[in-house]
Design a protein around this nucleic acid. Structure first.
Lengths: 148, 148
DNA sequence: CAGTATCCTCGAGGATACTG
DNA sequence: CAGTATCCTCGAGGATACTG
């Protein structure tokens, strides 16, 4: 199965994976959340090849995750900003980070504070209906007949 | 930068990505959450190459995400079960799914019900301290000086 | 700066046959 | 079943030079 074919399969995880499931894409997005918006910024901070980066930025722009904005004229210069669709990947980033914090690192290099309450935040998944914490065991999954 | 080198960088996201950030690993894990535990089950459901699958199952077992259990003797047969460390990837899976549900598919092929309240669950991220919904804008990030 | 163009390497992954 | 062994292909990604 080709990587792009994942995008056609009837599974939300696989389709998302077809977009971000390669070596660099998610790290480029993470870098954008961190405040990097320009080509050379991404390139230097990540150490990713210029051709790869060029390709990813184009794909992510086409996908609607980045918006390419001109921030200067003559010569024209562009930067990449996350769209709402891109921002909505934040929960993915956050859960990746929390797992890494827990299992792959001693001292988490990033701390998140919740602006509203001012406290160190460790976001957690709760049921939208009753507000209880949810994990794998507390949910039951129902698969459509044609689910991949 | 080699893919494995991501695992040594001072960033929880990158280190997690070094574990699951390839074409198949996350989908194998998703399949395990779905209830597949045996080699041929993974192979047939995913259509992944047998050599690739063999390699990933070994790596994930070594990483402590899967546990390899003998479920039959003479001949010995083994199956792969998620450990707690593996189960703790559930939030990643869930957030990937929810993004796909929203942006990449019409009718979500999987529905999750919260066992406790019985309702259709759409898990969401809330601050562990005050319980409010959090997104990118409501959090402020503090980076360690040596953060990647 | 923000890319494009080129060339190159290597390894991921597919396909298939075989084994206890 | 649960793999291992082999062979092969192709494309992802690295490196570097160049451009407006």
């Amino acid at each position: 199965m080709k990587h792009e074919c994942l995008g056609e399969v009837n599974c939300s995880v696989a389709r998302t994976w077809a977009v971000i499931g390669d070596r660099w894409t998610m790290l480029i997005i993470r870098e954008a959340f961190r405040g990097t918006h320009r080509f050379d910024g991404f390139q230097q901070r990540l150490g990713v090849g210029r051709n790869v980066l060029s390709n990813r930025l184009a794909r992510l722009t086409e996908e609607g995750i980045f918006e390419r904005n001109r921030y200067q004229e003559a010569p024209d210069r562009y930067e990449y900003r996350l769209t709402q669709k891109g921002m909505d990947l934040y929960p993915v980033l956050l859960t990746l980070m929390r797992w890494g914090d827990r299992y792959k690192i001693d001292e988490p290099p990033v701390r998140l504070y919740h602006k509203d309450c001012g406290e160190l935040a460790s976001p957690e998944l709760r049921c939208s209906h009753c507000g209880q914490l949810v994990d794998f065991h507390s949910l039951s999954a129902e698969y459509a007949p044609d689910a991949w």
